[in-house]
Computed example of a mutant assay.
Amino acid sequence: MDQLEDIRERIASSAAIAGRRPEAVELVAISKTHPAEAIAPLLAAGQRVFGENRVQEAEAKWPALRDAYPDVKLHLVGQLQSNKAEDAVALFDCIHSLDRPSLVAALGKAMDKAGRKVPCFIQVDIGEEEQKGGCSLPEVPALLASAREAGIPVIGLMCVPPFGIEAAPFFALLAKVAADNGLDQLSMGMSDDFETAVLLGATHVRVGSALFGARPKN
């Protein structure tokens, strides 16, 4: 698949410029709103890590695909309601949107009940935008501590920079906050800015439209 090969080459090029190994960057193909038939070509081309925004959509779409490709890893990249924590723990292999104490409590309880520890990123509201999910920068240490106390494996930080503004300063800031808190994984960078994110240390880039084209209209 040409688009997938192009994205992989661009990740490898940016990693090389930064003195990093391309395999240190995980491409998360954001398949939200796209049907199974649109995902199939990427699976056939070897892509195995996918991101979804909503638990309900993933539950409807992925069981059959995973039967065919049991090595697929599913990441939840959208906001998670606390009452969906058990469903998310059962379905996803990684959660990128841990952002508040109530969700820490719900996920900790769900993981204990399921006997399954799902790696999580703390989502940070890096641009201080009230309409976006994510904890504030000053809240990161306390949220991290409470997540660890609840037995949640926090592996890094995630952010979505403000739209229409150069993303590099926000990515650099997230990398600094992660390092200050002893975290070495960064979920940052999307279709328009993933190369910049790789240059600044992203370990996971979340690419949708550059792989799938424009999202279907509801």
Results as ranks from 00 to 15, higher is better:
D87M: 05
M1T: 13
H204F: 11
L199W: 01
D87P: 02
E129M: 06
L42R: 08
E37K: 05
G201S: 03
E149T: 13
Q47N: 06
L103N: 00
S82N: 02
I155S: 09
G46D: 13
T196Q: 06
E26R: 15
F92Y: 15
Q79V: 11
K132P: 04
P162F: 08
V140G: 08
L200P: 00
A45L: 07
A16L: 12
G156V: 00
D192E: 09
S146Q: 15
P138E: 04
I155M: 12
P35N: 01
L144F: 07
A58C: 14
F163Q: 13
R215T: 03
A36M: 09
V55W: 12
D112W: 05
L137Q: 13
M190V: 01
Q3N: 15
L211M: 00
Q56A: 13
D125E: 02
D71H: 14
L98S: 00
R54I: 12
K61H: 06
G151S: 05
C159I: 00
S146W: 02
A214Y: 01
T203V: 04
A214V: 07
A68G: 03
H34L: 06
T33L: 12
F171S: 09
V49L: 13
M190D: 01
V124D: 08
S136V: 00
Q47T: 10
S209E: 06
L91C: 10
L200D: 00
A179W: 07
P41I: 02
D193Y: 01
E128R: 09
A36Y: 01
F170Y: 14
S13R: 14
A114V: 02
V55A: 13
D180I: 01
P101E: 05
K176I: 10
P161I: 03
A24G: 14
M1L: 11
H204S: 00
D67M: 07
F171N: 05
P216H: 07
Y69D: 07
V72D: 03
M1A: 13
I17C: 14
V205H: 03
A147T: 08
L183P: 04
T203W: 02
K109Q: 15
N53K: 07
E166W: 03
K73Q: 13
R148W: 09
P169L: 03
L200E: 05
L183R: 11
Q3M: 10
L65S: 04
R20T: 09
I95L: 14
E26D: 14
Y69I: 05
D99G: 09
G133N: 09
L98H: 04
A150D: 12
D192Y: 10
A175T: 06
L174W: 10
R20Q: 15
D67W: 09
L42G: 09
S102L: 12
I165R: 11
A172F: 11
R10H: 13
L186T: 04
V177I: 15
E26A: 14
L137W: 11
I152K: 05
S187P: 06
S97H: 10
V55C: 07
A179C: 05
A40K: 12
I30G: 04
A150E: 08
F170K: 00
R100T: 00
P138M: 06
N181Q: 08
